[in-house]
Design a binder for these strands. Structure first.
Lengths: 110, 110
DNA sequence: CTTATTTCTAACTTTTAGGTTAGTACCTTA
DNA sequence: TAAGGTACTAACCTAAAAGTTAGAAATAAG
């Protein structure tokens, strides 16, 4: 049997790995997507789900993810305010990335 | 007021996604691992394979990856010098991550 | 009345990433 | 003689990312 050889191209700015990392390579980005996952989750829940993240970074990332259509946001005109976040169709497609990171962490890191 | 509380699996510092990102979340880290892939590659080749990376960042990341046993390094005592890098067993296990990033980039990014 | 809740904004500081320039060592080629 | 190739290291400085702190707005609970 002939062994199929993987062809690797130079990774310029158009490389899909690089384009993905440009969007998702932030320190918290994939973790936030992973935590939202398939649920509808409020801002405060999300904050508690990611201990250590600052409010600034969380809201900044959420704004970024909403702007780039990974996450959709629904705000209820209530007092105190209630805002729910969930993944869009595009956001759901990022879940395999976080899953692969989780698998690697579980299987290969001490 | 008894209300059933949604159980949230918080991503603290022990979360496998977070542990993986701590090691591999750098701007260039996964891209370098992806480019080395299953080959034995020289420093200069790798540099050409990642247009735009500075020598400082490339060597800095390579040193980090060697130190953390993702990459092995073999230097030949020749003039001009020749240094070959390849993935260790651990490094090979990171390839699915980059592959998932590549798939996402190809399928979901314009 | 005060206090708490929730989501988010703004100003400011610190930390990290990255850019630039220079240089090392030794041999080969022109 | 000089320039080129190769794989780095070091020093310096700027830009970007991330962290810290404070507070607003509206209402309800105490």
């Amino acid at each position: 049997m002939e062994k199929s050889q993987k062809i690797i191209f130079a990774s310029d700015e158009n490389c899909p790995v690089r384009r993905s990392l440009n969007l998702l390579g932030g320190k918290w980005t994939l973790l936030i997507l992973f935590q939202i996952n398939e649920r509808i989750i409020r801002y405060g829940e999300l904050k508690r789900a990611i201990p250590g993240i600052s409010e600034k970074m969380l809201i900044q990332e959420l704004n970024f993810l909403v702007e780039h259509k990974f996450v959709s946001k629904k705000a209820y005109p209530e007092i105190p305010p209630r805002v729910e976040y969930s993944l869009t169709k595009l956001g759901l497609k990022t879940l395999p990335i976080a899953d692969t990171l989780a698998t690697f962490g579980l299987e290969s890191l001490t």
